[in-house]
Design a protein around this nucleic acid. Sequence first.
DNA 1: CCAATTGCTATCACAATGTGATAAATGGAG
DNA 2: CTCCATTTATCACATTGTGATAGCAATTGG
Lengths: 251, 251
Amino acid sequence: MTRSMSSFDKAMALFGALVAQDGVFESDAMSVQLGVPESTLYRHLNALHSAGLICRSKRGRYLPNPVFLKKLEGFTPHAVLSEIVRPILEQLSVALETTTHFGILENDMVTYLAKAVFEGEEVFTREKGQLEAYCSAIGKVLLSHMTVDERQAYITSGPFPKLTDKTITDPAEIERELHRTRIRGFGVDDGEVHNALYCIAVPVFTSRGMVVGAISSSSSQRWASPKEQRDRLIQLNGVAQSISSTLGAGA
Amino acid sequence: MTRSMSSFDKAMALFGALVAQDGVFESDAMSVQLGVPESTLYRHLNALHSAGLICRSKRGRYLPNPVFLKKLEGFTPHAVLSEIVRPILEQLSVALETTTHFGILENDMVTYLAKAVFEGEEVFTREKGQLEAYCSAIGKVLLSHMTVDERQAYITSGPFPKLTDKTITDPAEIERELHRTRIRGFGVDDGEVHNALYCIAVPVFTSRGMVVGAISSSSSQRWASPKEQRDRLIQLNGVAQSISSTLGAGA
DNA sequence: CCAATTGCTATCACAATGTGATAAATGGAG
DNA sequence: CTCCATTTATCACATTGTGATAGCAATTGG
């Protein structure tokens, strides 16, 4: 099923490594890092150059081609993600019979990039709106996938307003909740943001295992049975994976 | 000298066409536009997808991969251009014994992205600073390469302050000056911005003939002989071409 | 609801490109 | 000048890409 990597993929892997290292290219280090012989690396560099993806700065330094960058100026990750996810979310909303959301983490807050309303199940959120992360289902999922340092920084940043009776506000308690979330693979908001709002959320990964965002199912009433929740989680995860594959590889 | 296009180049050409058309892909139209059979186009689409450059939205719509876009967020065309051009400009400054500039057009104003000072030839400009376009050498060059509509819009936008005795402020006169500039291939500022500032500028093209910006040679005194000016122009054009090739193909 | 159109995938024999090892040339730093 | 890292060049070989065709899938219009 894993199609053999074309030269394209390998060259793009090099490109990714380059931008990740701010343009610095050390042939031998890069060779072991990517598992590609040096001679091939230089051929890829030239391919990237003549394709207009990179330009040569000084020795050992290759930067993204500004002309190429300019072409992409009109596209923002937000807008694209939003467009990609929306139709998928709408299907999910119909299937689950709940309102669904797609959100990402931004400045320690959850930003909703897409929302699909289930009729009669109106929710106060709105697209492009922001929400606290520590108490929402999507937020918990995204926080739970931070690095240890990032999470530590978040936990100590505070304060964590008590939005409802159920809101977890104690930093240590939040940390435990995030740990639970990470372990079981999904986040739960049991009326912690709003009295009549219950959500579950699962992460959306890139093909390389980075977390892009999370999708949630929101209801104004608590789920009836454990079985029903399990069912929702399965569907959520299926959709999450479907988004992953829509996004494609290389990330 | 023109190296045979690798699959990479062709796929990137498709990518370029896609972003230029806001993601819309019509196989037959694209086939004639790029001169590539449809079956190959779809193979390229899949290559771009699995390389993480594009993601599929709905039928016939392919958008830049948001994960890919996010990787490039740290790089701006300005910063990269500036870094690329600066060392080249410094060489030129030494060779010409004048201060040199690299500027682009932005909101009808010239923005200097790089400046190389020749000792003793201080100039009031500064990097990232803005200057009126209609009277500066770089500005004239960039304006002269606008489309007819763009130039018309600029000419009628006004007003054009009279910065020195020599500043051309009459719209019709400016238009003629731009036409002259376009025809002869270089721009002249004969003390029109500042009393003691004389510049000549030439355009910097991409390999596909689009204008990226312009480079200029500035002096506090008018050039002695026509021969000297001709010599400067030759060097300027050489450097402009060198920048072009540094930028690479595909644009 | 069925036809027609368009998007998209699969398969083939063949040609073109990419591949990796090696060697040599270039350029910068001390 | 000398060293070291970057970069180009060259080779025989194998992997990939190529384009034509056929077929499948999904959307559109009546």
